[in-house]
């Protein structure tokens, strides 16, 4: 009986075939390559006279039709992003458990007291803004030094969904830092009047929640995404 198991070279040809049909990311290619390879092997075992390239074209049109991989690629890109957005929300959900809820409420209350009752608003503004700037610079330096939004790959020829997600994460970190800064400036405005308790409470809550989100985007998410990538494609990670 004819051995129909595809060779490494043939598998590489299927990867090229997917790339030439606009499947650029390796995570998506891997699944489609396995599908096509299985279909090709089946066809070649049923029709031994069939050449590899013919079997590949047949399998492609039979299973994926004239639309090809278009919808699959689009949906995978969307669901990849959604998956990590959901994990981010799950993290925030799990963050607010009993000991941390108390800590968060204590932080909100402290900030509220500072905003609402202390007279030295100008001093509070300067100290808080300085703390924020220091944090922002420290986080920026940390990012620069540790490359937390970059995955070290052995092979730079391949394109991965994860790289695009890291870019998105990085821009989210930058923009949430900026939002946090402007919210602080707005609520800490020294001569803002009238000084209502409601607005001060809203300001304190927003600032603390934004800070927790910023922490999650900066520290938790990159670690999680890298861990998932390491588990799925350890052969591409530079140690």
């Amino acid at each position: 009986m004819r051995n129909t198991q595809l060779t490494l070279e043939q598998i590489e040809l299927i990867y090229d075939f997917c790339y030439n049909h606009d499947v650029l990311e390796y995570e998506i290619q891997t699944e489609l390559v396995d599908h096509l390879a299985t279909a090709v092997e089946k066809q070649m075992s049923e029709k031994p006279e069939l050449a590899f390239k013919e079997a590949l074209i047949d399998a492609f049109y039979l299973d994926f039709g004239i639309d090809g991989f278009k919808e699959i690629v689009k949906s995978k890109r969307q669901s990849f992003r959604k998956q990590y957005d959901q994990l981010f929300l799950q993290f925030l959900g799990s963050f607010f458990q009993l000991p941390r809820i108390v800590l968060t409420l204590a932080l909100i209350l402290t900030l509220y007291i500072a905003l609402h009752y202390l007279d030295q608003r100008r001093i509070i503004l300067i100290i808080s803004a300085s703390i924020l700037v220091v944090f922002y610079l420290l986080f920026g330096m940390l990012d620069f030094l540790t490359n937390r939004f970059k995955i070290k790959l052995k092979n730079n020829e391949k394109s991965f969904l994860i790289v695009g997600y890291f870019n998105r994460l990085k821009s989210l970190v930058n923009s949430s830092g900026g939002v946090l800064y402007f919210v602080m400036i707005f609520f800490f405005k020294p001569f803002r009047s009238p000084q209502t308790a409601g607005i001060d409470l809203l300001g304190s809550t927003l600032i603390v929640l934004l800070f927790i989100s910023y922490y999650a985007l900066m520290f938790y998410m990159p670690k999680l995404v890298k861990q998932h990538f390491n588990d799925q494609f350890p052969q591409f990670v530079k140690s």
Partner: peptide, 9 residues
């Protein structure tokens, strides 16, 4: 396949 993979994802 055009329906299956998007649903799996």
């Amino acid at each position: 396949e055009g329906a299956l993979y998007p649903m799996l994802h």
